[in-house]
Design a protein around this nucleic acid. Sequence first.
DNA 1: AAAATACAACTTGTATACATTTATATTTCG
DNA 2: CGAAATATAAATGTATACAAGTTGTATTTT
Lengths: 236, 236
Amino acid sequence: MKDDAKSRKGELREHLKVSILTLRLRPGADLDEAHLSDAFGLSRTPLREVFRQLAGEGYLDLRTNRSARVSEMSYTTLRDFFLAAPMVYGAILRLAALNATAVQIDDLKDAQQTFKAALRSGSGADRALANNRFHDVTGEMSGNVYLLPSFNRLLIDHARIGMTFYRPQAGKMSQNLSLASQQHDAIIAAIEARDDATAAKLAEDHWNLSRDQIELFVMPDALDVPMGAPPLSKPA
Amino acid sequence: MKDDAKSRKGELREHLKVSILTLRLRPGADLDEAHLSDAFGLSRTPLREVFRQLAGEGYLDLRTNRSARVSEMSYTTLRDFFLAAPMVYGAILRLAALNATAVQIDDLKDAQQTFKAALRSGSGADRALANNRFHDVTGEMSGNVYLLPSFNRLLIDHARIGMTFYRPQAGKMSQNLSLASQQHDAIIAAIEARDDATAAKLAEDHWNLSRDQIELFVMPDALDVPMGAPPLSKPA
DNA sequence: AAAATACAACTTGTATACATTTATATTTCG
DNA sequence: CGAAATATAAATGTATACAAGTTGTATTTT
C-alpha cells in the first residue's frame, strides 16, 4: 500500500484546509511546524511547501522568521467581502451554466446530496463543508482561471463566516437553510439547462439570502461597520 | 553589507517575475532548479519555496515530479481574460478612488512618470513593466483582499499580451500609447478627487483601448476564437 | 527493422544537520 | 525592587545528502 510521503502531504493539506474552514483553527492561530511535522510523519521541508501553497490560496499568512498563521478575518475585510462576493459569484455561476461538463454536473448533484444529508443529520462543520464543496464545484465549472483565485478566496471566508450560523438547531435558521438548499437545486437546474441568465439571477438570490444570514448573526456585535452597500467615502 | 540569502531570494523572485512578464521566459518554458540555484547562490530549498509562491500568484505551474513551468497562455484563457478583465478592473479602480492613501497616490504618480519616460525612450519591456507597475499600485489602493488575487492574475497576462504591442516604433500604435498615458493621468486625477464613478468609467475606457490593441495585434493569428463577448454556447 | 525492455544519467522530492533569528528567562546594576 | 542587559532556549531559514521518480539511450527480442 502506498502510505508514502506524497499522500501524507495531501492529507496534511486537506486537514489544514478543513480545520481552517471549520474554524477548528481560528483566524490568527499559530501553526507549529515541529508538531505538525511529527503528527503527519513529514519532514519540515515538504511541510513548509504545503504552507506556502496554502498561503497562496489564502488559508495562511506567512511572515518571515515567524510562525505561519491562519489568515485573519477582521471586520474590515468583511466589508470587502460584501463588496466582492455578489459580483464574483454572479460571474462564476453565469460561466458555470455556459461551460459545465456532464461530469461536473454530476459532481454538483453529488455535492448537493451531501449537503442535504448534512442539513438533516450533520454537524455545523459538515454543513459548512458540504456547502463549500457545492460552490467549489461551480467554480470548477466556470473554468475561468482569472476569476477563480478571487472566487476561491471568497469561499474560504464564506465558509468561516458561515460556520457561525450553520450550527444545528439554530432555531429559525432552519427554514433559511432549507431555502438555501432549494436554491442549490434551482442552480443545478439552470446550469443543466445552460441558462446563464437564470444562473446569474439565482446567484444574486443566493447571495442575498447568505447576506441576510450574515448580517443577522454577525452584525449585532459590529454595528459600526456599514454592510451590504459599497462605502461612500473615506480612506485612511 | 547584507547580500545574504534572504535578499538573494527576493532577487530571484523579482528576476523571475520580470522575465515572465516580459516574455523573456516564454509561457510553457521549463525552469531548471539546478541552474537557477547556481546562478543566484541559493540552495534548492529556498528556491523551491519561491517557485511555490510564484505558482500561487499565477506566474508558474508546478507538476509533481516534473520541472516547474512558466504558466501557459492559450487562446482559450484569452477568452476568459476578455471576460474577467473589464469587470475586475472597474471594481478595482472604483475602490482605489475610495480608499487610496496619500502615499499611494504619490506612488501612482511616480509610476506614471516612469511610464511616460519608458514611452519616450524605453524598450518594449520597460514600457510593459512600467504600465504593469502603474496598475499594480491601483490594486494596492483598492486594498480588497478578495479582488486582488484575480486582479493580480489578470495583470500578469495583461503584461504578457501587451508585450506584443509595447515594442518601440510600433507605427500607428504610438498614438494609442500616448492615449493610454493620458488615461493614466485622468485616472490619477479621479482617484485624487475621490471620484469613484469617474474612476470606474475611466477603467472602462482604458480597458476598451487595451482590448482594441489586443484584437489588432493578436487576433490576425487566431480568428477562430470569438472575442470581446461572452461565448454563447458550448462545453466539452 | 520496429517494438519492447533494460539500464544509466539526470531531475525532482524528502530528510536531516546546521545557521540564523526570535522569544524567554536569568542576571546584573541602578 | 525594577529596568536594562545578557545568556539561554526554541523556532525559523538554509544547505546538503540521500531517496524516488523520470527521461533518454542502448540493447535485446521478435
